[in-house]
């Protein structure tokens, strides 16, 4: 299954934010979407998950055109979302947060989901009864990813997972995403931390002012003088 975005345009009110974005993510692939603050990355993710309506263009998940489908419907079709700033439910336990991610699954699948998430993040298993609000920043980010994985997404959208984390923790979280992709989930990683993202992702898109201005294998982008100058300050 592939997530395919074609000529997507959208915005808020009269202010256009995205100007014809094309992008694709296949299952098992690690793709980074890079760009400065205000480039339109989060707007793109909100449009993909159905929180914002596109003005023009298409979003397809596999064979399904997502036009007009609710966020809940998209989640059920296999589109997972790790929102910016984690957005956990702080007064619920780790386990309850995870169960929420599987709210629409048959009860039998839930157990499978727990095994998978606890396998990926053993630390969450240790803390399953703890309130989510009492976890450390890194653990909270793992929980946010785990919660999205509970719904068995085929494509996972991850918004700024390194936000507010120390460099060491940020690296740990991004490496966890690599493990997620190895299980066959396509990961679209939206990040400001360009150096780290290019290490984790196989391919990347660079977004500026609502347009994709560069795309290619991470290896190539790392060598691209424009990327080196604008994002890697080399």
């Amino acid at each position: 299954m592939r997530l395919v975005v074609e000529a997507l345009e959208t915005g808020y009110g009269k202010a256009q934010v995205l100007f014809g974005v094309d992008l694709r993510v296949a299952e098992g692939e690690r793709v980074a979407l890079l760009g400065a603050n205000g480039a339109g990355k989060t707007t793109l993710l909100r449009t993909l998950s159905g929180l914002l309506r596109p003005w023009r263009g298409r979003v397809r998940l596999g064979e399904v055109d997502l036009r007009g489908l609710s966020p809940a419907r998209r989640a059920r079709l296999g589109l997972g979302h790790v929102p910016e700033g984690r957005q956990l439910f702080p007064l619920m336990s780790v386990e309850e947060n995870l169960r929420l991610g599987a709210a629409f699954l048959a009860p039998g699948r839930e157990k499978e989901g727990f095994e998978r998430v606890y396998g990926l993040f053993p630390r969450l298993a240790e803390r399953r009864r703890q309130l989510a609000g009492t976890l450390s920043g890194g653990e909270q980010q793992m929980l946010a990813i785990g919660r999205a994985l509970m719904g068995f997404p085929r494509i996972l959208l991850v918004d700024e997972p390194s936000l507010g984390l120390s460099p060491r923790l940020a690296e740990e979280v991004l490496l966890a995403l690599r493990a997620v992709a190895e299980e066959g989930v396509g990961v679209l990683l939206v990040e400001q931390n360009v150096a780290l993202s290019l290490e984790v992702a196989e391919r990347a898109y660079v977004m500026e002012h609502g347009r994709i201005v560069l795309e290619g294998p991470s290896q190539a982008l790392r060598q691209d003088p424009r990327v080196r100058e604008a994002y890697l300050s080399l």
Partner: peptide, 24 residues
């Protein structure tokens, strides 16, 4: 029941509940 989780998620953050597949 798990309805509690759906209710609490809807109350605390509707947008997150929706992208997690809750029909708010």
């Amino acid at each position: 029941s798990s309805f509690r989780l759906a209710q609490a998620a809807t109350r605390q953050s509707e947008a997150v509940a929706r992208v997690l597949g809750v029909r708010v």
